[in-house]
């Protein structure tokens, strides 16, 4: 019953979508970063709704992003995992959730994050993509061995 009520509240905040993707259980405050890493700006054409700091049973508070007529690529899902590992991706077809999946932080991330070390070879014009190994401590640049531990969203390319 309680779950229903929560859903009702969400309905008030964010209109249901017919087809597209709902990114749910985003860490509170990260919705705008999610939008940013999906490359959505004022000049792109997606129909988009954002709800922030929505009450959540599991998380206390959460953010939600709803995107009409768009499904996410694997790379986009990986990017979301980096900033919000508990997020869930719901694919909506004809107002119904037809697929629901969690996100998973990959072991090796390529081309998603810029190395914060200005002296790193990966920040030059070499024909390579940045590469980080994901460790419990953070993201480890395979080139300069720098470990990125904080503020990962601001380093996402």
């Amino acid at each position: 019953m309680k779950k229903e009520e929560n859903n009702e509240k969400e309905e008030l905040l964010v209109r249901r979508i017919q087809n597209g993707t709902v990114i749910d259980h985003i860490a509170p405050g990260e919705a705008l970063n999610v939008v940013k890493i999906l490359g959505i700006t004022g000049s792109t054409t997606e129909s988009l709704s954002i709800a922030t700091n929505v009450p959540s049973d599991q998380m206390g508070k959460k953010d939600i992003v709803k995107l009409s007529n768009r499904e996410l690529s694997k790379e986009e899902v990986d990017r979301i995992a980096l900033i919000s590992p508990r997020a869930t991706i719901n694919i909506i077809r004809n107002y119904k959730v037809c697929e629901k999946k969690g996100v998973e932080v990959p072991e090796l991330i390529e081309g998603l994050v810029r190395c914060p070390n200005p002296g790193c070879i990966s920040n030059t014009n070499e024909p390579i993509r940045s590469r980080f190994v994901v460790t419990p401590k953070g993201l480890h640049c395979i080139y300069c061995e720098w470990v990125l531990t904080r503020d990962i969203p601001s380093h996402i390319i």
């Binding site: 070879i121 990966s122 640049c141 300069c144 061995e145």
Partner: peptide, 27 residues
């Protein structure tokens, strides 16, 4: 090389062995 990680990059593109003799503040 002055850039950190340059030797790792070199190893990626070389068809012969690479030895790092110092890359910037790195190894």
């Amino acid at each position: 090389h002055p850039k950190e990680g340059a030797a790792r990059l070199a190893a990626q593109f070389a068809s012969v062995p690479v030895i790092n003799a110092g890359d910037g503040a790195g190894q």
